[in-house]
Design a protein around this nucleic acid. Structure first.
Lengths: 254, 254
DNA sequence: AAAAATATGTTGCTAAATGTTGTTTTGAAT
DNA sequence: ATTCAAAACAACATTTAGCAACATATTTTT
Protein backbone atom coordinates (compact mmCIF):
# COMPACT_ATOMS: atom_id res chain seq x y z
CA UNK A 1 0.00 0.00 0.00
CA UNK A 2 1.39 3.35 -1.01
CA UNK A 3 1.63 6.27 1.30
CA UNK A 4 -1.05 8.21 -0.54
CA UNK A 5 -3.56 5.42 -0.63
CA UNK A 6 -4.71 6.03 2.91
CA UNK A 7 -5.14 9.71 2.26
CA UNK A 8 -7.10 9.16 -0.94
CA UNK A 9 -9.41 6.75 0.84
CA UNK A 10 -10.16 9.09 3.70
CA UNK A 11 -10.62 12.03 1.34
CA UNK A 12 -13.08 10.22 -0.88
CA UNK A 13 -14.96 8.77 2.05
CA UNK A 14 -15.08 12.10 3.78
CA UNK A 15 -16.28 14.02 0.76
CA UNK A 16 -18.35 11.36 -0.97
CA UNK A 17 -16.79 12.13 -4.33
CA UNK A 18 -13.62 13.79 -5.55
CA UNK A 19 -12.05 14.31 -8.95
CA UNK A 20 -8.73 12.86 -9.98
CA UNK A 21 -7.42 16.35 -10.69
CA UNK A 22 -8.42 17.58 -7.24
CA UNK A 23 -6.64 14.68 -5.63
CA UNK A 24 -3.55 15.34 -7.72
CA UNK A 25 -3.50 18.95 -6.57
CA UNK A 26 -4.22 18.12 -2.95
CA UNK A 27 -1.50 15.48 -2.70
CA UNK A 28 0.79 17.46 -5.00
CA UNK A 29 1.44 14.68 -7.47
CA UNK A 30 0.55 14.19 -11.12
CA UNK A 31 -2.86 12.91 -12.07
CA UNK A 32 -1.20 9.95 -13.69
CA UNK A 33 0.12 8.94 -10.29
CA UNK A 34 -3.34 9.19 -8.80
CA UNK A 35 -4.65 6.87 -11.48
CA UNK A 36 -1.88 4.40 -10.81
CA UNK A 37 -2.62 4.36 -7.11
CA UNK A 38 -6.36 4.22 -7.59
CA UNK A 39 -6.47 1.34 -10.06
CA UNK A 40 -5.65 -1.41 -7.55
CA UNK A 41 -7.90 0.24 -4.99
CA UNK A 42 -10.76 0.08 -7.43
CA UNK A 43 -10.03 -3.56 -8.19
CA UNK A 44 -10.22 -4.34 -4.49
CA UNK A 45 -13.51 -2.50 -4.45
CA UNK A 46 -12.67 0.05 -1.78
CA UNK A 47 -13.54 2.94 -4.08
CA UNK A 48 -15.65 3.33 -7.17
CA UNK A 49 -14.21 5.00 -10.23
CA UNK A 50 -16.02 6.93 -12.91
CA UNK A 51 -14.71 9.05 -15.73
CA UNK A 52 -12.69 11.77 -14.06
CA UNK A 53 -13.54 11.09 -10.46
CA UNK A 54 -13.75 8.71 -7.54
CA UNK A 55 -16.89 7.88 -5.64
CA UNK A 56 -16.96 6.55 -2.11
CA UNK A 57 -18.38 3.08 -1.66
CA UNK A 58 -19.42 3.95 1.86
CA UNK A 59 -21.18 7.23 1.77
CA UNK A 60 -21.90 8.12 5.33
CA UNK A 61 -23.08 11.60 4.69
CA UNK A 62 -25.69 13.34 2.69
CA UNK A 63 -24.93 16.21 0.31
CA UNK A 64 -25.95 19.03 2.70
CA UNK A 65 -23.81 17.66 5.50
CA UNK A 66 -20.97 17.03 3.06
CA UNK A 67 -21.18 20.60 1.84
CA UNK A 68 -20.72 21.87 5.37
CA UNK A 69 -17.88 19.43 5.95
CA UNK A 70 -16.10 20.69 2.85
CA UNK A 71 -16.60 24.35 3.60
CA UNK A 72 -13.30 25.76 4.83
CA UNK A 73 -11.98 22.25 5.04
CA UNK A 74 -8.28 23.05 5.42
CA UNK A 75 -8.91 25.26 8.44
CA UNK A 76 -11.08 22.65 10.11
CA UNK A 77 -8.46 19.96 9.61
CA UNK A 78 -5.78 22.20 11.11
CA UNK A 79 -7.99 22.98 14.08
CA UNK A 80 -8.88 19.33 14.53
CA UNK A 81 -5.24 18.24 14.59
CA UNK A 82 -4.52 20.94 17.11
CA UNK A 83 -7.40 19.82 19.35
CA UNK A 84 -6.18 16.23 19.13
CA UNK A 85 -2.82 17.39 20.45
CA UNK A 86 -4.48 18.81 23.53
CA UNK A 87 -5.88 15.39 24.33
CA UNK A 88 -3.79 12.66 25.92
CA UNK A 89 -4.20 8.96 25.37
CA UNK A 90 -6.58 7.54 27.92
CA UNK A 91 -8.50 10.71 28.66
CA UNK A 92 -12.24 11.22 28.59
CA UNK A 93 -14.15 13.58 26.31
CA UNK A 94 -17.57 14.88 25.48
CA UNK A 95 -17.99 15.92 21.85
CA UNK A 96 -20.94 17.72 20.31
CA UNK A 97 -22.19 17.48 16.74
CA UNK A 98 -21.06 19.67 13.86
CA UNK A 99 -18.71 19.65 10.92
CA UNK A 100 -15.70 20.86 12.89
CA UNK A 101 -16.34 18.27 15.56
CA UNK A 102 -16.50 15.68 12.79
CA UNK A 103 -12.95 16.54 11.81
CA UNK A 104 -11.90 16.49 15.44
CA UNK A 105 -13.23 12.94 15.66
CA UNK A 106 -11.16 11.99 12.62
CA UNK A 107 -8.04 13.45 14.20
CA UNK A 108 -8.78 11.77 17.53
CA UNK A 109 -8.49 8.36 15.91
CA UNK A 110 -4.78 8.68 16.52
CA UNK A 111 -5.37 8.73 20.27
CA UNK A 112 -5.82 5.52 22.21
CA UNK A 113 -8.01 4.36 25.06
CA UNK A 114 -10.31 7.34 25.01
CA UNK A 115 -13.64 7.46 26.76
CA UNK A 116 -16.04 9.44 24.62
CA UNK A 117 -19.59 10.58 25.02
CA UNK A 118 -21.26 12.25 22.06
CA UNK A 119 -24.74 12.89 20.76
CA UNK A 120 -23.59 12.45 17.16
CA UNK A 121 -24.02 8.97 15.68
CA UNK A 122 -21.38 9.78 13.08
CA UNK A 123 -18.78 10.64 15.70
CA UNK A 124 -19.82 7.72 17.88
CA UNK A 125 -19.42 5.36 14.95
CA UNK A 126 -16.10 6.83 13.89
CA UNK A 127 -14.49 6.62 17.29
CA UNK A 128 -15.95 3.30 18.37
CA UNK A 129 -14.00 1.62 15.57
CA UNK A 130 -10.75 2.54 17.29
CA UNK A 131 -9.52 -0.36 19.36
CA UNK A 132 -9.47 0.45 23.05
CA UNK A 133 -11.92 3.34 23.00
CA UNK A 134 -15.05 3.36 25.12
CA UNK A 135 -17.83 5.20 23.36
CA UNK A 136 -21.21 6.26 24.71
CA UNK A 137 -23.87 7.36 22.29
CA UNK A 138 -26.05 9.91 24.01
CA UNK A 139 -29.62 9.88 22.79
CA UNK A 140 -32.01 7.77 20.81
CA UNK A 141 -33.93 9.68 18.20
CA UNK A 142 -31.60 11.20 15.64
CA UNK A 143 -32.00 14.53 13.96
CA UNK A 144 -32.33 14.25 10.23
CA UNK A 145 -29.50 16.14 8.61
CA UNK A 146 -26.59 15.30 10.89
CA UNK A 147 -27.61 12.22 12.86
CA UNK A 148 -27.41 13.84 16.25
CA UNK A 149 -29.72 13.29 19.19
CA UNK A 150 -31.25 15.96 21.42
CA UNK A 151 -33.85 13.94 23.28
CA UNK A 152 -34.26 13.39 26.97
CA UNK A 153 -32.15 10.24 26.84
CA UNK A 154 -29.22 12.24 25.45
CA UNK A 155 -29.17 14.47 28.52
CA UNK A 156 -29.53 11.53 30.86
CA UNK A 157 -26.54 9.76 29.37
CA UNK A 158 -24.37 12.87 29.43
CA UNK A 159 -25.36 13.70 32.98
CA UNK A 160 -24.45 10.21 34.14
CA UNK A 161 -20.80 10.68 33.15
CA UNK A 162 -17.92 12.98 33.95
CA UNK A 163 -15.13 13.89 31.54
CA UNK A 164 -11.94 15.88 31.31
CA UNK A 165 -12.63 17.81 28.12
CA UNK A 166 -15.81 19.03 26.49
CA UNK A 167 -15.04 19.62 22.83
CA UNK A 168 -17.60 21.98 21.37
CA UNK A 169 -18.20 24.03 18.28
CA UNK A 170 -20.30 27.12 17.63
CA UNK A 171 -22.25 28.50 14.70
CA UNK A 172 -20.73 31.93 15.07
CA UNK A 173 -18.92 34.16 17.50
CA UNK A 174 -19.84 37.72 18.39
CA UNK A 175 -17.42 40.13 20.13
CA UNK A 176 -19.81 40.96 22.93
CA UNK A 177 -22.55 38.34 22.77
CA UNK A 178 -20.05 35.48 22.78
CA UNK A 179 -20.41 32.03 21.21
CA UNK A 180 -23.68 31.52 19.42
CA UNK A 181 -25.75 28.61 18.10
CA UNK A 182 -28.94 28.35 16.08
CA UNK A 183 -30.95 25.93 18.15
CA UNK A 184 -31.73 25.94 21.82
CA UNK A 185 -31.31 22.18 21.90
CA UNK A 186 -27.70 22.53 20.76
CA UNK A 187 -27.03 24.97 23.55
CA UNK A 188 -28.68 22.67 26.05
CA UNK A 189 -26.44 19.81 24.99
CA UNK A 190 -23.40 22.08 25.11
CA UNK A 191 -24.33 23.15 28.64
CA UNK A 192 -24.81 19.54 29.70
CA UNK A 193 -21.37 18.67 28.33
CA UNK A 194 -19.76 21.66 29.97
CA UNK A 195 -21.36 20.75 33.28
CA UNK A 196 -19.71 17.31 33.34
CA UNK A 197 -16.33 18.50 32.11
CA UNK A 198 -13.26 19.97 33.77
CA UNK A 199 -12.35 22.02 30.73
CA UNK A 200 -14.04 23.17 27.54
CA UNK A 201 -12.23 23.22 24.22
CA UNK A 202 -14.08 25.44 21.76
CA UNK A 203 -13.16 24.70 18.15
CA UNK A 204 -14.07 27.51 15.77
CA UNK A 205 -12.67 28.46 12.39
CA UNK A 206 -12.08 32.05 11.33
CA UNK A 207 -15.21 32.28 9.18
CA UNK A 208 -17.32 32.03 12.34
CA UNK A 209 -15.88 35.30 13.58
CA UNK A 210 -16.91 37.28 10.55
CA UNK A 211 -20.45 35.92 10.33
CA UNK A 212 -22.72 38.92 10.30
CA UNK A 213 -25.18 37.13 12.55
CA UNK A 214 -28.34 38.24 10.83
CA UNK A 215 -30.04 35.02 11.83
CA UNK A 216 -31.40 34.92 15.35
CA UNK A 217 -28.74 33.18 17.37
CA UNK A 218 -28.72 31.96 20.92
CA UNK A 219 -25.92 32.43 23.38
CA UNK A 220 -23.85 29.59 24.68
CA UNK A 221 -22.54 29.50 28.24
CA UNK A 222 -19.56 31.76 28.89
CA UNK A 223 -16.02 30.45 29.03
CA UNK A 224 -14.55 29.36 32.30
CA UNK A 225 -11.07 30.33 33.42
CA UNK A 226 -9.22 27.30 32.12
CA UNK A 227 -11.22 26.78 28.95
CA UNK A 228 -9.46 27.19 25.63
CA UNK A 229 -10.48 28.27 22.15
CA UNK A 230 -8.77 26.66 19.17
CA UNK A 231 -8.84 28.70 15.97
CA UNK A 232 -7.06 28.63 12.61
CA UNK A 233 -6.41 32.38 12.57
CA UNK A 234 -6.27 34.81 15.40
CA UNK A 235 -9.53 36.78 15.59
CA UNK A 236 -9.30 40.56 15.62
CA UNK A 237 -8.65 42.67 18.68
CA UNK A 238 -12.41 43.12 18.98
CA UNK A 239 -12.58 39.66 20.49
CA UNK A 240 -9.91 40.15 23.16
CA UNK A 241 -12.59 40.96 25.74
CA UNK A 242 -14.41 37.74 24.99
CA UNK A 243 -11.38 35.49 24.71
CA UNK A 244 -8.37 36.02 26.91
CA UNK A 245 -5.25 35.69 24.70
CA UNK A 246 -4.03 33.09 27.17
CA UNK A 247 -7.05 30.94 26.31
CA UNK A 248 -6.44 31.21 22.59
CA UNK A 249 -4.69 28.46 20.66
CA UNK A 250 -3.93 29.16 17.02
CA UNK A 251 -3.57 25.97 15.00
CA UNK A 252 -0.44 25.68 12.91
CA UNK A 253 -1.64 26.01 9.32
CA UNK A 254 0.29 22.94 8.17
CA UNK B 1 14.79 1.33 23.02
CA UNK B 2 16.77 4.10 21.42
CA UNK B 3 16.03 7.71 22.15
CA UNK B 4 15.10 8.27 18.53
CA UNK B 5 12.70 5.39 18.43
CA UNK B 6 10.37 7.05 20.90
CA UNK B 7 10.48 10.28 18.93
CA UNK B 8 9.80 8.57 15.61
CA UNK B 9 6.84 6.76 17.11
CA UNK B 10 5.26 9.87 18.52
CA UNK B 11 5.85 11.80 15.30
CA UNK B 12 4.29 9.16 13.09
CA UNK B 13 1.37 8.71 15.44
CA UNK B 14 0.84 12.43 15.66
CA UNK B 15 0.90 13.05 11.95
CA UNK B 16 -0.57 9.74 10.82
CA UNK B 17 2.09 9.48 8.14
CA UNK B 18 5.59 10.86 7.70
CA UNK B 19 8.34 10.33 5.15
CA UNK B 20 11.71 8.86 5.95
CA UNK B 21 13.42 12.01 4.63
CA UNK B 22 11.29 14.24 6.84
CA UNK B 23 12.21 12.18 9.85
CA UNK B 24 15.89 12.32 8.93
CA UNK B 25 15.75 16.10 8.73
CA UNK B 26 13.74 16.46 11.93
CA UNK B 27 16.02 14.25 14.00
CA UNK B 28 19.09 15.52 12.14
CA UNK B 29 20.42 12.11 11.17
CA UNK B 30 20.87 10.37 7.82
CA UNK B 31 17.91 8.68 6.20
CA UNK B 32 19.82 5.44 6.36
CA UNK B 33 19.80 5.67 10.12
CA UNK B 34 16.07 6.20 10.14
CA UNK B 35 15.63 3.04 8.09
CA UNK B 36 17.81 1.10 10.46
CA UNK B 37 15.83 2.26 13.48
CA UNK B 38 12.52 1.70 11.76
CA UNK B 39 13.11 -1.84 10.54
CA UNK B 40 12.82 -3.54 13.92
CA UNK B 41 9.92 -1.26 14.81
CA UNK B 42 8.12 -2.46 11.73
CA UNK B 43 8.86 -6.08 12.58
CA UNK B 44 7.37 -5.56 16.02
CA UNK B 45 4.37 -4.06 14.29
CA UNK B 46 4.35 -0.69 16.03
CA UNK B 47 4.53 1.17 12.72
CA UNK B 48 3.68 0.34 9.15
CA UNK B 49 6.27 0.97 6.45
CA UNK B 50 5.66 1.78 2.82
CA UNK B 51 7.99 2.96 0.11
CA UNK B 52 9.37 6.26 1.31
CA UNK B 53 7.29 6.71 4.40
CA UNK B 54 5.89 5.42 7.66
CA UNK B 55 2.23 5.05 8.47
CA UNK B 56 0.83 4.97 11.96
CA UNK B 57 -0.78 1.71 12.94
CA UNK B 58 -3.43 3.68 14.81
CA UNK B 59 -4.50 5.40 11.67
CA UNK B 60 -7.80 6.15 10.09
CA UNK B 61 -9.77 3.28 8.57
CA UNK B 62 -9.88 0.46 11.04
CA UNK B 63 -8.89 -2.81 9.37
CA UNK B 64 -11.20 -5.23 11.21
CA UNK B 65 -14.48 -3.64 10.22
CA UNK B 66 -13.28 -2.55 6.81
CA UNK B 67 -11.79 -5.95 6.17
CA UNK B 68 -15.09 -7.61 6.96
CA UNK B 69 -16.92 -5.10 4.83
CA UNK B 70 -14.72 -5.98 1.87
CA UNK B 71 -14.88 -9.72 2.31
CA UNK B 72 -17.19 -11.15 -0.32
CA UNK B 73 -18.22 -7.65 -1.12
CA UNK B 74 -19.93 -8.30 -4.45
CA UNK B 75 -22.27 -10.87 -2.90
CA UNK B 76 -23.17 -8.61 -0.02
CA UNK B 77 -23.94 -5.73 -2.35
CA UNK B 78 -26.19 -7.96 -4.43
CA UNK B 79 -27.99 -9.18 -1.34
CA UNK B 80 -28.31 -5.65 0.02
CA UNK B 81 -29.87 -4.39 -3.20
CA UNK B 82 -32.29 -7.28 -3.14
CA UNK B 83 -33.29 -6.56 0.45
CA UNK B 84 -33.85 -2.92 -0.44
CA UNK B 85 -36.26 -4.07 -3.15
CA UNK B 86 -38.36 -5.81 -0.52
CA UNK B 87 -38.78 -2.57 1.38
CA UNK B 88 -41.25 0.13 0.35
CA UNK B 89 -40.83 3.83 0.87
CA UNK B 90 -42.33 4.85 4.18
CA UNK B 91 -42.04 1.51 5.92
CA UNK B 92 -40.45 0.77 9.27
CA UNK B 93 -37.46 -1.46 9.91
CA UNK B 94 -35.24 -2.87 12.59
CA UNK B 95 -31.66 -3.57 11.48
CA UNK B 96 -28.97 -5.37 13.41
CA UNK B 97 -25.22 -4.85 13.19
CA UNK B 98 -22.86 -6.65 10.82
CA UNK B 99 -21.11 -6.12 7.54
CA UNK B 100 -24.02 -7.39 5.44
CA UNK B 101 -26.40 -5.14 7.32
CA UNK B 102 -24.00 -2.27 6.63
CA UNK B 103 -24.46 -2.82 2.92
CA UNK B 104 -28.20 -3.11 3.37
CA UNK B 105 -28.13 0.31 5.02
CA UNK B 106 -26.24 1.69 2.04
CA UNK B 107 -28.80 0.24 -0.34
CA UNK B 108 -31.68 1.55 1.76
CA UNK B 109 -30.53 5.11 1.19
CA UNK B 110 -32.52 4.93 -2.01
CA UNK B 111 -35.73 4.51 -0.03
CA UNK B 112 -37.49 7.47 1.46
CA UNK B 113 -39.36 8.22 4.67
CA UNK B 114 -38.22 5.11 6.46
CA UNK B 115 -38.50 4.60 10.19
CA UNK B 116 -35.45 2.70 11.36
CA UNK B 117 -34.32 1.31 14.67
CA UNK B 118 -30.85 -0.14 14.90
CA UNK B 119 -28.23 -0.88 17.52
CA UNK B 120 -25.41 0.00 15.10
CA UNK B 121 -24.11 3.58 15.26
CA UNK B 122 -22.73 3.19 11.75
CA UNK B 123 -26.10 2.25 10.31
CA UNK B 124 -27.88 4.86 12.40
CA UNK B 125 -25.53 7.54 11.13
CA UNK B 126 -25.77 6.40 7.52
CA UNK B 127 -29.54 6.34 7.42
CA UNK B 128 -30.21 9.42 9.52
CA UNK B 129 -28.55 11.52 6.84
CA UNK B 130 -31.28 10.62 4.38
CA UNK B 131 -33.87 13.36 4.29
CA UNK B 132 -37.21 12.19 5.60
CA UNK B 133 -36.00 9.18 7.55
CA UNK B 134 -36.71 8.78 11.24
CA UNK B 135 -33.87 6.93 12.94
CA UNK B 136 -33.70 5.54 16.45
CA UNK B 137 -30.36 4.53 17.84
CA UNK B 138 -30.89 1.68 20.27
CA UNK B 139 -28.37 1.60 23.06
CA UNK B 140 -25.73 3.73 24.66
CA UNK B 141 -22.44 1.98 25.24
CA UNK B 142 -20.94 0.87 21.94
CA UNK B 143 -18.99 -2.28 21.33
CA UNK B 144 -15.46 -1.69 20.21
CA UNK B 145 -14.99 -3.16 16.78
CA UNK B 146 -18.28 -2.35 15.11
CA UNK B 147 -19.89 0.41 17.13
CA UNK B 148 -22.98 -1.53 18.10
CA UNK B 149 -24.79 -1.44 21.42
CA UNK B 150 -26.05 -4.41 23.43
CA UNK B 151 -26.87 -2.75 26.72
CA UNK B 152 -30.13 -2.60 28.58
CA UNK B 153 -31.04 0.68 26.92
CA UNK B 154 -30.81 -0.98 23.51
CA UNK B 155 -33.48 -3.50 24.43
CA UNK B 156 -35.69 -0.82 25.96
CA UNK B 157 -35.60 1.27 22.80
CA UNK B 158 -36.32 -1.69 20.54
CA UNK B 159 -39.14 -2.94 22.75
CA UNK B 160 -40.79 0.49 22.69
CA UNK B 161 -41.29 0.34 18.94
CA UNK B 162 -42.99 -1.83 16.37
CA UNK B 163 -41.83 -2.35 12.79
CA UNK B 164 -42.75 -4.12 9.60
CA UNK B 165 -39.41 -5.75 8.83
CA UNK B 166 -36.56 -7.00 10.99
CA UNK B 167 -33.47 -7.17 8.81
CA UNK B 168 -30.96 -9.51 10.36
CA UNK B 169 -27.74 -11.25 9.51
CA UNK B 170 -26.10 -14.39 10.87
CA UNK B 171 -22.54 -15.59 11.40
CA UNK B 172 -23.21 -18.94 9.82
CA UNK B 173 -26.01 -21.31 8.88
CA UNK B 174 -26.20 -24.99 9.72
CA UNK B 175 -28.57 -27.40 7.94
CA UNK B 176 -30.14 -28.68 11.15
CA UNK B 177 -29.12 -26.23 13.84
CA UNK B 178 -30.29 -23.23 11.85
CA UNK B 179 -28.98 -19.67 11.89
CA UNK B 180 -26.06 -19.17 14.24
CA UNK B 181 -24.24 -16.28 15.90
CA UNK B 182 -21.15 -15.99 18.03
CA UNK B 183 -22.44 -13.95 20.93
CA UNK B 184 -25.50 -14.39 23.06
CA UNK B 185 -26.01 -10.63 23.06
CA UNK B 186 -26.37 -10.65 19.29
CA UNK B 187 -29.02 -13.29 19.53
CA UNK B 188 -30.82 -11.38 22.24
CA UNK B 189 -30.95 -8.28 20.05
CA UNK B 190 -32.11 -10.36 17.09
CA UNK B 191 -34.91 -11.82 19.21
CA UNK B 192 -35.93 -8.38 20.41
CA UNK B 193 -36.08 -7.16 16.81
CA UNK B 194 -38.03 -10.21 15.69
CA UNK B 195 -40.49 -9.71 18.52
CA UNK B 196 -41.43 -6.22 17.37
CA UNK B 197 -41.55 -7.07 13.67
CA UNK B 198 -44.18 -8.52 11.37
CA UNK B 199 -41.60 -10.19 9.17
CA UNK B 200 -37.94 -11.11 9.36
CA UNK B 201 -35.59 -10.72 6.42
CA UNK B 202 -32.45 -12.77 6.96
CA UNK B 203 -29.56 -11.63 4.77
CA UNK B 204 -26.80 -14.21 4.41
CA UNK B 205 -24.18 -14.70 1.73
CA UNK B 206 -23.16 -18.11 0.42
CA UNK B 207 -19.96 -18.30 2.44
CA UNK B 208 -22.04 -18.52 5.61
CA UNK B 209 -23.52 -21.80 4.46
CA UNK B 210 -20.21 -23.54 4.06
CA UNK B 211 -18.76 -22.45 7.38
CA UNK B 212 -17.79 -25.61 9.18
CA UNK B 213 -18.89 -24.12 12.47
CA UNK B 214 -15.97 -25.26 14.57
CA UNK B 215 -16.39 -22.24 16.81
CA UNK B 216 -19.04 -22.59 19.47
CA UNK B 217 -22.06 -20.93 17.90
CA UNK B 218 -25.40 -20.06 19.37
CA UNK B 219 -28.74 -20.60 17.74
CA UNK B 220 -30.96 -17.80 16.60
CA UNK B 221 -34.75 -17.99 16.82
CA UNK B 222 -36.37 -20.12 14.12
CA UNK B 223 -37.98 -18.63 11.07
CA UNK B 224 -41.66 -17.79 11.09
CA UNK B 225 -43.98 -18.65 8.23
CA UNK B 226 -43.76 -15.38 6.31
CA UNK B 227 -40.09 -14.67 6.97
CA UNK B 228 -37.70 -14.63 4.03
CA UNK B 229 -34.03 -15.41 3.53
CA UNK B 230 -32.08 -13.41 0.97
CA UNK B 231 -28.96 -15.10 -0.42
CA UNK B 232 -26.61 -14.55 -3.33
CA UNK B 233 -26.54 -18.23 -4.30
CA UNK B 234 -29.01 -20.94 -3.59
CA UNK B 235 -27.77 -23.13 -0.73
CA UNK B 236 -27.62 -26.87 -1.30
CA UNK B 237 -30.53 -29.24 -0.92
CA UNK B 238 -29.32 -29.97 2.61
CA UNK B 239 -30.88 -26.70 3.68
CA UNK B 240 -34.33 -27.29 2.23
CA UNK B 241 -35.59 -28.51 5.60
CA UNK B 242 -34.39 -25.35 7.30
CA UNK B 243 -35.50 -22.91 4.63
CA UNK B 244 -38.68 -23.46 2.68
CA UNK B 245 -37.93 -22.72 -1.01
CA UNK B 246 -40.85 -20.30 -0.93
CA UNK B 247 -39.01 -18.30 1.69
CA UNK B 248 -35.83 -18.15 -0.30
CA UNK B 249 -34.92 -15.10 -2.38
CA UNK B 250 -31.82 -15.38 -4.55
CA UNK B 251 -30.34 -11.98 -5.33
CA UNK B 252 -29.63 -11.29 -8.98
CA UNK B 253 -25.85 -11.19 -9.30
CA UNK B 254 -25.44 -7.54 -10.26
C1' DA C 1 43.45 3.29 28.40
C1' DA C 2 42.53 -0.41 25.16
C1' DA C 3 39.31 -3.34 23.13
C1' DA C 4 34.83 -4.56 21.91
C1' DA C 5 30.39 -3.46 20.79
C1' DT C 6 27.27 -0.31 18.98
C1' DA C 7 25.66 3.38 16.29
C1' DT C 8 26.07 6.54 12.41
C1' DG C 9 27.60 8.28 8.01
C1' DT C 10 29.14 7.48 3.09
C1' DT C 11 29.28 5.48 -1.36
C1' DG C 12 27.75 2.93 -5.23
C1' DC C 13 24.29 0.27 -6.91
C1' DT C 14 19.40 -1.68 -7.60
C1' DA C 15 14.57 -1.15 -7.33
C1' DA C 16 10.54 1.51 -7.08
C1' DA C 17 7.79 5.47 -7.78
C1' DT C 18 6.77 9.47 -10.30
C1' DG C 19 6.73 12.72 -14.13
C1' DT C 20 6.46 13.58 -19.20
C1' DT C 21 5.14 13.09 -23.68
C1' DG C 22 2.31 11.63 -27.21
C1' DT C 23 -1.64 8.87 -28.45
C1' DT C 24 -6.11 6.82 -27.79
C1' DT C 25 -10.50 6.69 -25.59
C1' DT C 26 -14.48 8.67 -23.55
C1' DG C 27 -18.45 11.82 -22.85
C1' DA C 28 -21.01 15.69 -23.98
C1' DA C 29 -22.65 19.09 -27.27
C1' DT C 30 -23.95 20.11 -31.27
C1' DA D 1 -23.16 11.11 -36.77
C1' DT D 2 -19.39 14.79 -36.02
C1' DT D 3 -16.63 17.37 -33.34
C1' DC D 4 -14.10 18.78 -29.43
C1' DA D 5 -12.10 18.76 -24.90
C1' DA D 6 -11.14 16.26 -21.08
C1' DA D 7 -9.63 12.05 -19.30
C1' DA D 8 -7.26 7.67 -19.58
C1' DC D 9 -3.52 5.13 -21.13
C1' DA D 10 1.15 3.53 -22.69
C1' DA D 11 6.03 4.00 -23.07
C1' DC D 12 9.93 6.17 -21.81
C1' DA D 13 12.85 9.37 -18.89
C1' DT D 14 13.75 10.98 -14.47
C1' DT D 15 13.75 11.15 -9.79
C1' DT D 16 13.70 9.11 -5.39
C1' DA D 17 13.97 5.35 -2.02
C1' DG D 18 16.13 1.20 -0.44
C1' DC D 19 20.03 -1.64 0.42
C1' DA D 20 24.65 -3.52 1.20
C1' DA D 21 29.32 -2.94 2.31
C1' DC D 22 32.59 -0.40 4.28
C1' DA D 23 34.50 3.63 6.98
C1' DT D 24 34.14 6.42 10.88
C1' DA D 25 32.67 7.92 15.20
C1' DT D 26 30.69 6.90 19.88
C1' DT D 27 29.80 4.43 23.70
C1' DT D 28 30.51 0.50 26.85
C1' DT D 29 33.19 -2.92 28.98
C1' DT D 30 37.26 -4.73 30.84
Amino acid sequence: MSKHEQEILSLVNLRGTITVVELAQTLDVSDQTIRRIVKPMEERGVVRKVHGALISTQEVMDPPFLARMNKNRAAKVAIANCVAELVQDGSSLAIDTGSTSGYVAQALRRRKNLTIVTNSAYIASTLSMVEGNRVFMAGTQLRNHDGAAFDRAAFDVIASLTVEHAILSASSVHPTRGFLAFDQCEIDIARAMIDISARTVMAVDATKFSASGSLPSLRMPELRANDVVVVDQSPGAAFSDLIDPKQLVVAAGQ
